[in-house]
Nucleic acid binder design. Structure first.
Lengths: 195, 195
DNA sequence: TTGACAATAGAACGATCGTTCTATTACGCT
DNA sequence: AGCGTAATAGAACGATCGTTCTATTGTCAA
């Protein structure tokens, strides 16, 4: 019943705990977690992870979840001969929360209705992250109120002339006459396939 | 210079800290964070959040980030008259990590190359989360090796007859003759618009 | 069998944790 | 002005933190 401990198993245990509890375990908790009965044994393994750089401490000395394997194994056991997912950017993703949202205090999420942006790969039911207060650039996908209705459109600008375009030929471009209220710029799209 | 403290500002400060450090602050740290000079003042505010249910403690007594506002304000200040984002599912999203990945230990991430799935709203450059070992259903998007090449396709099955279809008319369906190695089922799609 | 090394146990330590207590200050209402 | 409540300060407390020490166990090679 005593499984062999390795830096890998220890790291996995830590990741599992973190995912469940939203925090790192204390040394006492790690005793159970790792299956040892002394804190020094815990310290032994933690030190190994620290020395190998697979675990870090912040400025206060608290353990902090690091790069891979904590939020989930981004680059884990991939089928042999598989196209390498070992891009730098992927390896450095701490979590999707960090990756997806630059300005959390100015962002919110909407669920997409309608098919006006299918050409952009945004389908009904998808989630979009919208950032308020950002100056839309030409070609950005924005959420705006046009003629009293909220929609998602491409933002097109030529000089002072603003046009809102759908990414679906079924919808004609809109040239807002009166007011144009822009809720924000779409910064990310998320789709989950529910089982 | 002394900003008024409210449960809202306190909650926001906690969220900000958590996002930055990956953990909850200690009471000492909260003194700086909230702008007070005693731990009992901190305790005062934390108690408020606890009593109102906006903050929780786990079984060990540690503060744990809860539902909204910690990972980021999913339902925050939304422009007036805005289509309500107050769906139950959205309000309960703890974090995208939890939301997106059901089985972390069996999942990995790939960056999409090519345009074979644009019809499904999966574009080149997107990230997809792939889950290994799941039995693909009819219509699922899977990652598989066909004729020595890894691609992303729809999984179509009629009886024992398996066909792989692209979501792009430019690519003909594939009926694998020899072996069909399925790396996994695509469970989520993520696209970030970089500024 | 012996020696070397890796891994663990157990106890002790100061440091810091979160809680609780008593006082003091700030502000609104009558 | 006087009063009551909300908010904060500051000090004290036991509990638990992570570290460090010494001692013991297990395993493998010589």
């Amino acid at each position: 019943m005593k499984t062999q401990r390795t830096t890998e198993t220890v790291e996995r245990d830590l990741g599992k705990f973190f995912r469940e509890k939203g925090r790192m375990p204390t040394y006492s908790e790690m005793m159970k977690l790792f299956g040892v009965r002394s804190k020094s044994a815990v310290h032994f393994w933690i030190r190994k992870l620290l020395d190998s750089g697979r675990l870090k401490k912040d400025d206060r000395g608290f353990l902090r979840p690091v790069n891979r394997s904590f939020f989930f194994p981004l680059v884990g056991e991939v089928p042999a001969g598989f196209p390498s997912p070992a891009e730098e950017e992927l390896r450095d993703i701490l979590s999707f929360d960090e990756y997806l949202v630059d300005r959390p205090e100015a962002s919110f999420v909407l669920r997409v209705r309608g098919d006006s942006m299918t050409g952009e790969g945004i389908k009904a039911g998808d989630l979009v992250i919208v950032e308020r207060g950002r100056e839309p650039r030409n070609g950005d996908v924005i959420v705006a109120e046009v003629d009293g209705e909220w929609t998602m459109k491409y933002f097109r600008k030529k000089g002072t002339d603003v046009t809102l375009e759908a990414a679906n030929p079924a919808y004609p471009p809109v040239r807002p006459r009166e007011e144009l209220r822009i809720a924000g710029v779409v910064t990310a799209v998320i789709r989950k396939y529910h089982r």
